[in-house]
Amino acid sequence: MEGLMAIVIGILFTIGTYLILTNQMLRIILGLSLISHAINLMIIIMGGLKSGGPPLLSERNHDFTDAIPQALILTAIVINFAVTAFLLVLSYRTYKKHGTDDFNNLRGNEHE
């Protein structure tokens, strides 16, 4: 199961990287959010994909899931959500002001 997930993560990373290398603002943002999903998946499988009870002493389970990756993911998702929201607003405003969403046209020049 972990091997399969590793391939899925790899594919997500590939698509994300491809999108980041394009010039269009929105594609880059989508690429970044695909990569962030890949990373979230990666954190989950880093704890091992096993079924089991909650990691509580009172439950007395023989196997239990690792709680730390879940705590990490929760934090990572929230942060990523906030940053992506900000990024979308920022790119919209940039598009409005500059009239373009192509990074080739957003280089700036020497005399400004």
């Binding site: 940053v83 900000f86 990024l87």
Partner: peptide, 9 residues
């Protein structure tokens, strides 16, 4: 706006 979007990315 132009410079900050690069910085954020």
């Amino acid at each position: 706006l132009r410079e900050s979007i690069k910085y954020v990315l």
